[in-house]
Design a protein around this nucleic acid. Structure first.
Lengths: 217, 217
DNA sequence: TTTATTGTTTAGACAAATCTAAAAATTTAT
DNA sequence: ATAAATTTTTAGATTTGTCTAAACAATAAA
């Protein structure tokens, strides 16, 4: 059993692993809002518990055990987000902080019953996939535009944000359902995306890219 | 804002206050599964925060501020219990430990939306009343079974003891929520109660009777 | 009304998670 | 390749909540 804090470290390391592996101390420190020295301390502890592999000055990677633990927390986080939006009428941008707390509740029965109650959702309100209880992610027909790299091509098949302000913005950019797009470049410094839609070059912010769902083809 | 631990102390002090006021150090120590010295430490801290009034060797009482905080935790605990039973099909003796964790989630929006989602329940699955967001309890018309006399009739509307051992015992006796009962006799020498529940004659100890709540009708 | 018993508090220590400041390793630039 | 800049780690201190052992207060018994 891990402490609340240990769980948070594992979750952050899991998310950062998708960007760069191994994960560097400073990257964790920044994300978890703490000092590098504190991160080093915690990494040592997680390493002793065999939840991460740690090489001094190189960074950390999750062990199989650590990865399963992290995925389980992600699962709980996303299920609770679905609950908050679908059942309690939260907006998608109001759920994060509360889910951040709820993800640490310890009860397998609770998680499985919640999953059932929500009718086994495959994605959370932001379009992120929800792993099953064994830690497996279902293959999804779509991926967030923000996950694509230069050269990738696809079709807009959905959005994960339904405010009329956002939809009007997309319409103005010509990024509507069914449109084919191609990524030109993902800008390093702000994560904004340069793309081609109907011979038209457009730049969209990372925030916008996060809420456009693409079917690669 | 109080820590998880401080919240637990306030809640326990609130519950113990209903039995004896002021609440003694040892009583808290026993309930919270810790040592008297630790309780003294925490009481001092709560006293500095003006959540309790503390007189050395005499015990503690909650201040108005402390009482409101405690009642809010009780409110959340009981609302979550309703959620677990009504929506996730937990049994009434499975909910306590999970609710014990959920009661510490910090979000007023969450609590109010949950209350609404559950259709503003007045009592939890054990029959305990749920205070409103201002800390007020609705008047409920129940009395301890141990206060009844022969010939009295009523309906089981709650319990005031939530250990799963006790709840299982009641289930075995067929004395579950909603059952109608009639007192046959209260035995002089040990205070045990002979009663009729669904044509079935049963004898329960005074201790058990003390923890069953009855609506006379 | 001393003595014994029980209950409570103090003193000092410990583990978890954090911090600051300084040292060490690594990377980048000259 | 050596110096400079950056990143990471160590060392030592701090805070929160806990503990044990000893001292102190209150209550009950002789």
């Amino acid at each position: 059993m891990q402490s609340y804090t240990e769980e948070n470290y594992l979750k952050i390391i899991y998310h950062l692993s998708e960007i760069s592996n191994p994960v560097l101390t400073n990257a964790i420190a920044e994300r978890i809002q703490t000092k590098a020295a504190s991160v080093t301390d915690m990494i040592k502890k997680l390493s002793e518990k065999e939840l991460v592999n740690y090489v001094k000055y190189q960074g950390v990677t999750l062990t199989e055990k650590g990865k399963l633990t992290a995925i389980n927390i992600v699962r709980k986080h996303r299920l609770w987000e679905v609950f908050l939006v679908d059942k309690l009428n939260f907006k998608w941008d109001e759920v994060h902080d509360v889910a951040e707390e709820l993800e640490h509740i310890q009860s397998n029965l609770l998680v499985e019953r919640l999953d059932e109650f929500l009718d086994f959702p495959r994605v959370d309100p932001h379009g992120d996939p929800i792993p099953d209880k064994y830690g497996n992610f279902a293959e999804l027909a779509f991926v967030k535009l923000s996950k694509l790299n230069s050269g990738d091509k696809g079709t807009i098949t959905g959005v994960s944000e339904h405010s009329s302000a956002f939809l009007k913005h997309l319409e103005k950019l010509g990024l509507t359902l069914g449109k084919r797009i191609e990524i030109i470049e993902v800008l390093e410094f702000d994560g904004s995306v340069e793309l081609l839609a109907e011979q038209q070059k457009t730049n969209i912010s990372r925030e916008v890219a996060k809420h456009i769902l693409i079917t690669k083809n």
